[in-house]
Simulated assay, not measured.
Amino acid sequence: MESVGPDDSELFKPDFDLIPIKSGDYIEIGVLAPGLPAGTEFHLDYYALPDRFFDLGGSTSLSGNGKFSLEVPLTWNDDLQLPISIIFPDGSSTVENLHVDVTPANFAGNHDVTYTDTTLTAGDTTTITPTTTDLPANTTITLVENTNLNDAHTTGWTIDTTPHGQLTVTAPITATTGIELTLLVAYPDGTEEETTAIINTTPANFAGNHDVTYTDTTLTAGDTTTITPTTTDLPANTTITLVENTNLNDAHTTGWTIDTTPHGQLTVTAPITAGKIQLSVLISYADGTSEVTSVNIEALPKPVVEEPKDDDKDHPQPAPKPSGSSFGSS
């Protein structure tokens, strides 16, 4: 009786190497298990892979001659075990597992998104961009809704952002302190990180940067004049009002009339009697600062007008001669 030797599946033991790969990468292998008899066929059980692997964009292929390719989804972080059927030329077969060691991409751990601290003057607008520019495609950066952001909006800050994390920030004119914003960096591999953007503020200090004055003014008692500030480049929404004090009360009591516009133009009528007044004017700026300046006004006496002299009284003229007479006649 002729003895039967071992079949190919007993003689050949495929040795699949462990395949290391990172999430989001692609690998291609020419022959999975070299050294097997010619005509050996390979078949992959695709149903052994989770549906989620394909739903996330993963793919794999195995040709009959052992050429293998694998693309791991960017958001896939689990190792893979692929059952592969090997059919030898003698018809014997075996099933061996191909092990794939998947290393998560971990974009959040491999990138560091930061913003440089920024300072702007109250009332101004600035644009701030992340210092990191080599972020993976499809990374998004959004503002985190928290107490800091709500407080900023409540106090008049406006903040706009693009999906790439560029911030356009306008400080309110009354700002005296800065803000700290939190941003969420979401990477396409599913990892996330938070970062902060600090915006410092320099107060506008309009009162310290402007000097409103009035030129000393004289007018004739009983007359009216208009007085305007010497400074014309005041910030928008600046208002100028008379200060209610003893000087103003005394002026009203002695017959002065004073009217003012929100821009500080004074219309003053002096009483019929001469005199001086000093008015205090409050300049209120849109940034909340203010200053007081003075207006000095003097009413001069009216000039005395003398009556013209009567020459006929001071120098009498000779009486006219009688009509028809002549000198020396008898």
Rank of each mutant, 00 (worst) to 15 (best):
V4A: 10
E10C: 08
L11Q: 14
K13W: 10
D15P: 02
G30H: 07
G35T: 07
A38G: 05
D45Q: 05
L49T: 03
D51A: 02
R52T: 13
D55S: 01
L56V: 00
S63W: 07
N65M: 05
N65S: 12
F68S: 05
L70M: 06
L70N: 08
V72D: 11
L74F: 08
D79R: 08
L82M: 12
P83C: 09
D90F: 10
D90A: 15
N97W: 04
N97C: 06
P104R: 02
N106K: 03
F107I: 00
F107S: 02
G109A: 07
V113Q: 08
V113D: 01
T114E: 10
T114V: 05
Y115V: 13
T118W: 00
T121V: 15
T121Y: 09
A122T: 12
T125V: 08
T125S: 05
T133V: 11
T133Q: 10
A137K: 06
N138S: 14
T139E: 12
I141L: 09
L143V: 13
N146Y: 12
T147I: 04
N148V: 01
T154V: 11
T158V: 02
T168F: 01
T170I: 02
A171K: 02
A171S: 12
G178R: 11
G178I: 14
T191E: 00
T202C: 09
T202K: 15
A204W: 08
N205H: 09
F206N: 05
Y214S: 07
L219E: 11
T224W: 12
T232K: 15
T241N: 12
V243S: 10
D250R: 10
H252S: 11
T257Y: 07
T257F: 09
T261D: 04
G264A: 06
A270Q: 04
P271Y: 01
P271D: 03
T273I: 11
L279K: 13
S280C: 06
Y285R: 07
T289S: 15
S290W: 04
E291W: 04
V295M: 08
E307P: 15
P308D: 05
D312I: 00
H315S: 01
H315V: 02
P316A: 03
Q317F: 13
G324L: 03
F327N: 10
G328D: 13
S330I: 15
